[in-house]
Structure formats: structure tokens, C-alpha cells
Amino acid sequence: MTVPLWYYLVLSGLIFLIGLVGVLVRRNIIIILLSIELMLNATNINFVAFSSYLGNLAGQVFVFFALTVAAAEVAVGLAIIIALYRHRSSINVDEFRLLKW
């Protein structure tokens, strides 16, 4: 008895929703980055599930690339956070509205 594919789709949709709500709702920049990681993981689960069910390994290669991009995003994002904290001594997104009109 195997697990049907749509279980995985529902699971990854749920995780993506949780990440999206986290990005929209939280004020702490670090939690927002963590929520972006959640969304990336949701897409990765989708890729791996389809790759396994279609018998095509290309999906797993794309997860590999998504992981690379996630690592780059974390490095740059955390560097930006540290630079921001040095400037304002706060990481509350409500206080960064310089580019907002």
C-alpha cells in the first residue's frame, strides 16, 4: 500500500502556506528569512515527490540547485541583517521604511 501523490502535494501546499503567512505576519527579519526557508522546503518536497513518482531524476537535480540558491540567499541575507543592525540597532521591519513612500 503506497502513499498517493496528492498527499505530498497537500503537505507541501500546507508548508508553503505556513511560510507565506510567516513572511506576511512576523516583524522579525530573521523569522521572515526562516519562513522563506520553509517555502523553499515546500517546493523541494514537491520536486522530490514528483521525481520519485514519475521515475525521473531531474527533479532531484533541481532540488540540488534550489539548495544552492538557498545557501547563497542565507549568506547574503544574514550579511544584510548584520549591516542593518549595525546601522539602526534593530531588526524590526517596521523601522525600515526608507524606500517606502
Binding site: L24, V25, R26, R27, N28, I30, L33, L34, V74, L78, I81, I82, Y85, I91, N92, D94
Partner: peptide, 17 residues
């Protein structure tokens, strides 16, 4: 992530928009 969280030594803030 943990390194940056501990480096910045964040206090608890009000959490939601």
C-alpha cells in the same frame, strides 16, 4: 542562523504585524 541570532542578542519583541 543561530550564530546571527546569538550575535545580535535579540530581546523578545512584539511579534505580529
Amino acid at each position: 542562523y543561530l550564530f546571527v541570532v546569538m550575535l545580535l542578542n535579540l530581546k523578545r519583541e512584539e511579534r505580529f504585524h
